[in-house]
Amino acid sequence: MMTERKIRVLVAKPGLDGHDRGAKIIARAFRDAGFEVIYTGLRQTPEQIVAVSIQEDVDVVAISLLSGAHGTLMPKVVKLLREKGADDKLIIGGGVIPDDDIPALKEAGVAEIFTPGTPTSVPIEFIKANVRQ
């Protein structure tokens, strides 16, 4: 007798970026979509984000970055998760991220990037379609 499986998502703000309007809106939207959401708060190192992702056994790590540090910090989270043997998580990113940077982030293991103006329903549907079973 398996109860309905809950999708667990970590909404993470790595680096020094203080813009959390997007992260908080997406956290609320995920909650309203029935997900369990863990929000890290500001100024988390990739190491902290990875440790929390593991302990909480989240299905999804959603990284929000508007400071331009995405090229450094997002791949680092992916790399550390792999090193710790927790590479079955769906990693997505959002924020002010130029289109030109997206291929490199996907190459590094970020499943999808959502840029400004994306309705919250888009990442929600993406998660439902792609989350680990």
Binding site: E4, K6, R31, D32, A33, G34, E36, I38
Partner: peptide, 8 residues
């Protein structure tokens, strides 16, 4: 209502 939660 939704079963969702923010675990803060």
């Amino acid at each position: 209502f939704t079963g969702g939660a923010i675990l803060g």
